[in-house]
Design a protein around this nucleic acid. Structure first.
Lengths: 132, 132
DNA sequence: TCAGTAATAGTAATTATTACTGATAATATG
DNA sequence: CATATTATCAGTAATAATTACTATTACTGA
């Protein structure tokens, strides 16, 4: 993989945030360093970095893809109101997938994604204070 | 929620498959009963049924949304090659989220989504037999 | 039965992402 | 260091997925 300024800054931006930004949000951040960078370049590099397992793409049920520079396995909390995404602050352990099962042996397992959805503190207090 | 023929058939179709279809796939199935149903109607109803927790939307990192009539909590396996999605054939149990923690009490928790990605048996054997 | 209104079909618009193309610049090799 | 090779880029067009709009239809409760 060639080293380019674009790719380096994209990765720096992603590593410099905990907000799990979308491609578009990364694009706007990177534009502060490289004003004429192309949105396609951002998409291409993010996808490439995911392929090479330098970053991860976060699972979701709606909206755009979001990216995470932290590749250590961990889960996320997603607010269904404001679409905030944050890391889960505690370990979640699963019953291990039985590696000696025929199910497991018939497949190549890559990654585990898990996400908890709900209403974040800000939106929760909002809805309690001012019901429509 | 009003009972309409469209909504009933959409739900019947989803309940009649284990393939976790996309909105477009549901649309084509439903067209066999209601040939002039609108794709927008399918999207609207699926989203409405998700809201009312009659069905679930499955998390994903790419491609279209997929739906599942089975609302009992369970995880999914997704093939990164052919995009097949299937239920995990074993229970997924979590260490419970600590309900007495300040983190938990500050939020309203709705759902947990769990997905394992990898290569399915068909694609695995394909790649072993005929490498490019 | 019928008024009120949620839901619909058909279509247009929006959003997110990918593909294309000629130009640019990162690397490997002499 | 010079330069050939080619991955990558910017800019733009195209595609895919989903949502919004509007006039019409058909549930449902009274």
């Amino acid at each position: 993989m060639r080293q380019t300024k674009q790719r380096r800054i994209i990765l720096e931006v992603l590593r410099g945030t905990v907000h799990h930004p979308s491609a578009d949000e990364v694009y706007h951040q990177v534009r502060q360093c490289i004003p004429n960078i192309s949105l396609g370049t951002v998409y291409r590099n993010l996808e490439r970095l995911v392929q090479d397992k330098v970053i991860r793409k976060i699972v979701n049920t709606q909206g755009q893809g979001r990216f995470d520079a932290n590749i250590i396995p961990h889960g996320h909390f997603r607010c269904v109101k404001c679409h905030l995404v944050e890391d889960l602050p505690f370990e979640v352990t699963f019953t291990a997938i039985p590696e000696n099962s025929s199910w497991y042996r018939a497949r190549e397992i890559c990654e585990v994604h898990y996400e908890v959805t709900g209403i974040c503190p800000v939106c929760k207090s909002k809805s309690q204070l001012a019901p429509p």
